[in-house]
Design a binder for these strands. Sequence first.
DNA 1: GTCTATAAATAGATAGAC
DNA 2: GTCTATCTATTTATAGAC
Lengths: 210, 210
Amino acid sequence: MKTRDRILHVSLLLFNDEGEAQQTAVDISNALGISPGNLYYHFKGKDAIIRALFDAFEEEMRVILRGSRGQVTSIEDNWVYLYIILEEIYDFRFFYRNLGVLLDRYPDLASRFRSLVAEQRTTIHNVLADLGKADVLTIDPRLSEALTDQIMMSLTFWLEADAMNRSNLEGAALIHKTVFQVMCLIVPYMGENGFDALSRMISHYEANRT
Amino acid sequence: MKTRDRILHVSLLLFNDEGEAQQTAVDISNALGISPGNLYYHFKGKDAIIRALFDAFEEEMRVILRGSRGQVTSIEDNWVYLYIILEEIYDFRFFYRNLGVLLDRYPDLASRFRSLVAEQRTTIHNVLADLGKADVLTIDPRLSEALTDQIMMSLTFWLEADAMNRSNLEGAALIHKTVFQVMCLIVPYMGENGFDALSRMISHYEANRT
DNA sequence: GTCTATAAATAGATAGAC
DNA sequence: GTCTATCTATTTATAGAC
């Protein structure tokens, strides 16, 4: 593994586990067992590392979003698809733990992040519309935008909300809980079968918890 | 106005308008037209100012939360009550714009903030239960917790979500939109009258927008 | 590519005169 | 209570040897 890749790899681990704000360039080089000078040879600074990590995240997420087209045709599909999105976010969770700071400090990243979020929103909106056309969901058009916004809020702030709650859930359990939370937003639009599907989801949720 | 109060007043303005992270002790003293030394005479540093501002916010919010007991008995009451909560949050919006950083940097504030959020959640839960008992809402008990969490998420992250959207709404319009957003979460549980109430809300929303 | 050493920049904090 | 001057600490960034 080349030093450049090791830097990216270890930085991501440090940022995710200890928080991005807490890590200085020197901390990262220490964790790698290299000198600060060497780190600066490969990256102009922490900024450049973060930008490179965002490149990777952005590309992976766009692939996931584009992969949804016409592929989500049932509630179960939707469940699985939420899982995929949340796991990708979890891999780069440091971006989401302090969104505000990040957007303030890196204006160029901010606009790329906003564009990515916009594509996420469009994707969610299309998935809901597809499920509507397939009669899986019946969503009052007047509530459709608010529902999309609310799902986006869950997908964007679940990690911050968890930090607020001090839930101490580890990754998989937190992802599971969040999928469940989003599904609960949709249940009221599932009609007669909503409660059955909900029950199945709850037993599935309970079975996989702890 | 005493210097100590002027410091708190101007700091709140600066933090809300320019962001807390961006302001140093020297920036604050410059804005006040006093010396850094004088600022340090009144407050040990930016930390102490933030703590004092949180004292004020916490006290006001607890009064609001306790004032809800038995007072929210209709959808209209609920609408107004959301307004009151959101306006209080808006007055101290810098706390909510970078929640993560704040909780990381001030562990003592973090636990007080969590306790306040917990009381908020209990309040929301009780209000929903009251509306349920009054037959204004019919909430499936299996969805009740998820709904409460979702409302809490809106109340806690509406400002960050808006920053993400670059909506450029000014305060009153943003508060209005957020109240509407939360009400949309409740509409599915309003039964037959839900759509009527929704229509009224929408026209009210549209009328007050822009 | 990698190191050591050190400079430069920023933010936090205090001493002592008035 | 308020000021000027200064000091410390932290973090970022570079120069030059190997």
